[in-house]
Design a protein around this nucleic acid. Structure first.
Lengths: 352, 352
DNA sequence: GTGAAAGCGCTAACAA
DNA sequence: TTGTTAGCGCTTTCAC
């Protein structure tokens, strides 16, 4: 009457997954007793509890979490979504994104949550709501706002538990956590100015909120120094290494009238250095270059990168905390974490 | 009588998650009809089906997958487990591991599976069986064998659906997918020999199966050239950048009697180059260095790395296929994918 | 073409 | 201290 599909055919290979009733039968008790024992209930005789626990362990039995969650109406899974650019079909290869994912994985593990990792087309960030709607996850952590601030606002309006790694934007309805992008841009540019550079290029796609904010910081530092932003020195390179390389090579081949570059990722910085050398210019001699992120390898590049350090280690915990707070019903606004400039050789201190 | 916890208190914030019964009521049909409609059953009147589908969409209703899976006795989730070294408390930061995770994510998505990502103590790889035992995942993909080949064999003996990224070992009971490590080691060493190097160091922790195999390839190339392996030129550096740096610096400071280095990751290669320069030696002038993995940045380092290219893009699909084949009851042995040497400047062609 | 009802594996209120 | 039983949200057989 209700038999699903064919008879529960144990498929020869997998000998029907064990369940509580089996343990109960083997232990000569009822399933409730097993359930209570395995959940450490005080009601159960300590000795019985022990015996059942051992039996379960010896058979590698583990409570079916799907059934348990259904009954308990709870779920300890969080979806982490990394957008990708459908156009370029590029995989996420930027070490920064992957580090953030690692950091979130740690934070979730610490708090007893599981992490569902998925990709989503950067043009349809709202698709990530499916994880929540289908009950697979209790909330969504999205890495980056990309170009769809609007979709994120709509998701938040739906009361979807959502936290975004990214910059704080005007009229933002969703919770976000991110480094202080304006400050990062300012720190990089100001450092270059203080070390005597005057013609400072900016590398990054300002359609992305984070980059847009960094550019503001950069522009502000120039203003402080009484300099104007030269639009000709803005290079809209994307984060994907494969795409950025060409753009940067062309730029460095075409123009030589700058003595410093502020980049929006360490990868971009490395590509810029590469392009500069190909164009016959030295780093930091002719051109000083700053990166962004302070990825693990930044210290070991040649030259080691002066870069804006992002709080990756803290990021995971902050994102997870923001999500949990939201689910507790707390109102969580955007959160901006401090960043600092890590001085290394690609943009050294002092005059040249 | 069976009310779980407190009354289903909609927690003020989240207005009780919608369910099929709600859609049914709103559409004036039974839940069976909604179920059939949403699953595209031919039984349902096309118009009714359409109407229900639209209603569901407009309310952002999505079938509760937990309940569905329980009833259907199916699950489309695969656990991907990345071991970490508890000793060093180091996060996985090697771009290679993270790229593999990305590749698997793509392969799973393509086949309609979800990916559960987690960490496990590298000393207790067998803990990852919990994902299967608890029914959260239908199988496990483990990144790397680390030092517990034995635990993996035990897991396989339990008929646990498991695939490991790693090298093919003697007496291996579990399914694995990996690059051809012996060949990789041979290609690197042979190339260095052909370009005139004679004193070739090896960097990598040979307690890890993959490294062990690469070292075999390296040793074989030396033998072919009539050279003996000098144990003093073997550096047991781990993959973690933070730990490897010190080891390599000490080695390069202590010994100068080598003219080439075979490394087991690109990160190690960069650290080696750094250490060599600190010791006053040039790359590739004094010492040629080969990397391993051919990560995205390898081409943009200075000097660009000559490195063994690993089939990362294919890796995800191969791992997933192996897992699915296993669940179909097919016997899947170890699988070795081709690798090739990518020539770049850190170990150039021809004599010096 | 649609509805009623059973049951997937589990938990907990209630009874004993 | 333990067992009986209802039901979490869904699918599907069977009846209409």
């Amino acid at each position: 009457m209700t038999e699903p599909k064919a008879p529960p055919e144990p498929s020869a290979r997998e000998q029907r997954r064990l369940q509580m009733a089996d343990i109960a039968r083997l232990a000569g008790v009822s399933v409730s007793t097993v359930s209570r024992a395995l959940n450490g209930s005080e009601l159960i005789n300590a000795e019985t509890r022990q015996r059942i626990a051992e039996l379960a362990r010896s058979l590698n039995y583990s409570i079916n979490l799907g059934a348990r969650n259904l009954r308990l109406q709870e779920n300890k899974t969080v979806a982490v979504v990394v957008p990708y650019d459908r156009q370029s079909r590029q995989h996420i290869s930027d070490p920064f994104f992957l580090s953030i994912v690692g950091s979130i994985a740690d934070a979730l593990t610490d708090r007893g949550y599981d992490m569902l990792l998925s990709r989503v087309d950067a043009e349809h960030l709202d698709l990530s709501a499916g994880w929540f709607d289908s009950g697979k996850a209790i909330g969504v952590v999205l890495i980056g706002q990309w170009r769809h601030h609007d979709q994120l606002n709509e998701m938040a309006a739906r009361k979807l538990p959502l936290v975004v790694w990214g910059g704080e934007m005007p009229q933002q309805l969703y919770a976000s956590v991110g480094g202080d992008n304006v400050l990062g841009g300012t720190l990089a540019a100001r450092h270059l100015l203080q070390s005597g550079r005057r013609r400072i290029a900016f590398v990054g796609d300002a359609r992305l909120p984070e980059v847009w904010l960094r550019r503001q910081g950069y522009a502000q530092a120039l203003r402080e120094a009484g300099l104007a932003v030269d639009p000709g020195l803005e290079v809209a390179a994307p984060f994907e290494p494969g795409l950025a390389a060409g753009v940067l090579e062309r730029f460095c081949a075409a123009r030589q009238d700058f003595d410093a570059v502020v980049c929006c990722s360490d990868v971009q910085a490395l590509l810029t250095i590469q392009a500069l050398r190909a164009a016959g210019r030295s780093v930091p001699g002719d051109v000083a270059v700053t990166g962004y992120d302070d990825m693990a390898l930044a210290a070991y590049c040649d030259p080691p990168l002066t870069t804006v350090h992002q709080p990756v280690a803290e990021a995971g915990a902050e994102l997870v905390e923001a999500l949990l707070a939201q689910m507790r019903g707390e109102r969580t606004g955007p959160r901006t974490l401090p960043v600092y400039l890590k001085l290394r050789a690609s943009a050294p201190d002092g005059a040249r």
